[in-house]
Structures are given as C-alpha cells and as structure tokens.
Design a protein around this nucleic acid. Structure first.
Length: 222
DNA sequence: TGCCAGGCCCTCTTTAGGGCCTT
C-alpha cells in the first residue's frame, strides 16, 4: 500500500505558530515571534522558537497580550535570518497550525520579505481549528485554549507565546490523529491519520467524515 | 478591548449576511 504524500506512520509534521503586531500582513502587521514543533510517531521530536526583529512597532495591547515588548525585539535576530533558520529546521515537513489561514498569511509574507522560498505551503496547510470543528462539535468553542482544557492537554507555558501555543497545537494534533485512527479504525489503513488525510477531513462535511476516510483509502490503494 | 483582515462555516443561503478564530 502507498500513501499519496509518501508518508506513513513515521511522517514528520511541523506545527507552527506566529505572534504578530496585528491581524493582517496586508495591513502592515509583522511577525514578532515564530515557533515550530516537529511531531513524529505520536510525539514531539523537535522544537524551534525565536523572536524576530522586523523594525515594526509593537502596540501596547499586543505587549499585554503576548508579553513581547519593543525592547525585547531590539535584541532579537533579524526577521529574514529567523525565517531562513526556521525554514531549514522545518525542511520539507508539511505544515499544521491552529487557524492556518492566519499563520499562512504571515508565513508567506515573511518568507517573501526574507526572499525565502516557502515550499511547505504548496503541499497544504493543515488546520486544527477546521478539524476541531468537525471532530469535536460538542466543544464549547474551538479556540486553542478551550480545546486545551476540553481535552486536558499538557500545559506548555504562557499562552500567546509562540512556542507554548505551537506545543499545545501539537498536542491537539496528536490527539486528533489518535481520535481519527480510533474512530475510523476499520477504514483508515496502516498509514494512519496522515497530513494528506487531515487536509481532506478539514474540508469534508461534518456528517460525512467516514465517507471521506473511505475515499482517501481508495486513492491510497490505487 | 475590540476594532481592523482573511478565510472559513452555517443558515433565517446561494444575486447574502453574520459568526468564529487568529494577534
């Protein structure tokens, strides 16, 4: 049997999280911190975290939210240097984030500014927010902090810091992979809940997740 | 703190509007 992404149980996924000065790079917001957590074989196998000096001003409410100040960024490595470093750390591992649309926007913008090619984005960006809405409709809401409490995930430190949020997202991803494999045990096959399957599930109608897994299996077996 | 934006989902929809989630 083969998997369309060439992966199996040992597939390495990269969970990333940005802290930023605002909501949209299109409105001038810049990244202030990035973290990447590698997961493989059901566990965290690598961590990267760095503040990023872009020259952008950090608003007071962002400092209050994240603990990241303008003074901290003055001593941080340049944003372009950090993006090159994190790109090397991640390699060709497929990406995952909570509300991936947000992190994808900053990933693309900061890669472009740093003149770094962003190949992992082209292989798809799995989103634990979209997956949580499908897998856990009974959760009070699908914010990262709520899902952490809902599943009693391990504490990773201060929320709204990149590494802590990336680690919580990584634990959520691992929980989701286990739940998908358990829930669709009869259909899922040996490769398990791969990145390719998660990309399909996050777009599938909530009531037809089983059909999605079966259809994925047919593609894998072809 | 809650706007801003962007992408997505849901429904009182589809020639739309409102809510969720991220910093």
């Amino acid at each position: 049997m083969s998997s369309p992404d060439g992966a199996g149980a040992s597939q390495t996924l990269a969970v990333i999280d940005f802290e930023t000065t605002g909501m949209s790079p299109g409105m001038g917001a810049r990244a202030t911190e990035i973290a990447a957590v590698l997961v493989r074989n059901g566990q965290i196998v690598g961590r990267y975290q760095s503040l990023m000096r872009s020259g952008a001003w950090v608003p007071p409410f962002i400092t209050q939210l994240t603990g990241i100040s303008n003074a901290m960024l003055e001593a941080a490595p340049a944003a372009a240097e950090v993006m090159r470093e994190v790109g090397e750390f991640i390699g060709d591992a497929p990406l995952v984030a909570h509300n991936a649309a947000f992190d994808r926007g900053f990933w693309r913008a900061e890669c472009e500014r740093a003149d770094v090619a962003p190949p992992p984005v082209d292989s798809g960006f799995a989103c634990t927010l979209l997956l949580a809405r499908r897998l856990y409709p009974e959760a009070p809401n699908h914010r990262l902090g709520t899902l952490k409490a809902f599943h009693e995930l391990p504490d990773a430190g201060r929320a709204h810091r990149a590494l802590a949020d990336a680690e919580v997202t990584a634990h959520l991803l691992l929980r989701m992979q286990r739940d998908v494999e358990r829930r669709f045990e009869d259909q899922i096959g040996e490769e398990g809940a791969t990145h390719a399957l998660l990309l399909k599930l996050q777009r599938a109608p909530r009531q037809r997740l089983g059909d999605c897994v079966r259809a994925h299996r047919v593609v894998c077996a072809a």
